[in-house]
Design a protein around this nucleic acid. Structure first.
Lengths: 216, 216
DNA sequence: CCCATTGCGATGCGATCGCATCGTAAAAGC
DNA sequence: GCTTTTACGATGCGATCGCATCGCAATGGG
């Protein structure tokens, strides 16, 4: 009897913003991964980088694996946020081509946060082979972006700006493969951001016709 | 006096093929790096993977750093060898476009050795930021390949197969950026080798005109 | 007021890390 | 045949790894 007595819940003490704490630690993971790869990401190093105790890190992430997963999720969320913010600065027309161009420009920009996210992503590539969740986080959005590019190509064709002979699906593949590769080169210092953006703009102008598009 | 007595060199014992031994160990490094990233590459793991004792590994590489460097060098040498072998299978004409297409096809193929080399390369990206030698090994050949592509575009223009309006230099950038990105996608299972080769051929045919080119 | 619960620092464990050291077996020059 | 040099297995060291455990401070519901 009194089965309820042990179910009785006492106080609900110490209110802290759990997600904010986790994010702060995940940010440290991100910085380390971007700087020196996943080899450099240990519980102790993360704690030091975040300026907290190791106990705290363990309190918010039960295992290292869970911490790493949170790290790569934060990376992707940051990239999404940066793109979303840039899109808000666009004029209201809702032109999908401008959305595409803006998103790509953000990826190719040399803002430190962008480079950090891209370098960290690469550090996770090996894990993506063994961990399905990591794979999904890293590559899950690709299909949507490709569809956006595909629609943009078709629209340009409908407007007579792009050659009718183009295969929109292949062109979409090419556009994002190009953006990915150039962003990697920028993030790892093989190319300047300006060079990458120039190459990308050159390609898009060839494929889509050079409609008036705003700077930045 | 007799300063020469201590310089006297005795026997030159135990003749083993030093480079072959090093290569065998470096191959184990490569396999591990491709499979699970540089995190998984420790002296003990390498020794186990190579089926030798740890003492042997340390005998042939004084530090882990030196071993890793040898690993990435082997990776690049292997890729070069694979491309060179494929080129030997080409007809004798010395057509640079066929050379370019063959090299790219090799990179996009799904041969396990090719995928291994590419995955291992990615594992070294973080190191390339901190270690100049690694950077050079990974990216040192890019300029030559880009120049090859540039010449191919110019030749196609001269023959009237490619549009005169193209910027050969930008097109060369695009061709290799595309090849890099697609090879990454193939190596990490985001795309099939067939899809990647189809996309690449689609692009090259658009840029260079679809001159007769041999399969495989 | 009290105490159940949570937040989190401290500490210790066994495993593994890169590396240094030592011992020895084998081969060539004298 | 002795010596010298190389090849390499074995072992140990201090540091660091991920993780489990313990203990205490804080706090809000009963």
């Amino acid at each position: 009897m009194s089965m309820r007595s042990h179910c009785y819940a006492g106080g609900v003490p110490r209110k802290v913003d759990v997600e904010a704490q986790r994010a702060e630690i995940a940010a440290a993971v991100l910085r380390l991964a971007a700087r020196s790869g996943l080899e450099a990401v240990s519980l102790r190093e993360v704690a030091a980088e975040a300026g907290v105790s190791m106990g705290r890190v363990q309190h918010y992430f039960r295992t290292k694996e869970e911490m790493l997963l949170h790290g790569v999720r934060l990376a992707m969320r940051r990239m999404d946020t940066r793109i979303a913010e840039r899109l808000r600065r666009l004029p209201e027309e809702g032109d999908e081509e401008q959305v595409l161009r803006a998103a790509i420009d953000e990826v190719l920009g040399d803002h430190p946060e962008t480079r950090q996210v891209i370098r960290a992503s690469v550090a996770y590539y090996a894990r993506a082979q063994e961990n399905t969740e990591v794979f999904e986080v890293l590559f899950g959005d690709d299909a949507l972006l490709r569809e956006l590019a595909c629609r943009v190509v078709r629209t340009a064709q409908a407007q007579g700006r792009a050659p009718a002979g183009l295969d929109p699906w292949q062109e979409a593949h090419i556009i994002w493969a190009l953006a990915d590769s150039l962003s990697l080169k920028v993030a790892f210092g093989q190319t300047s951001s300006e060079q990458a953006m120039a190459t990308m703009r050159y390609h898009l102008d060839r494929v889509l016709g050079c409609g008036a598009h705003p700077g930045v």
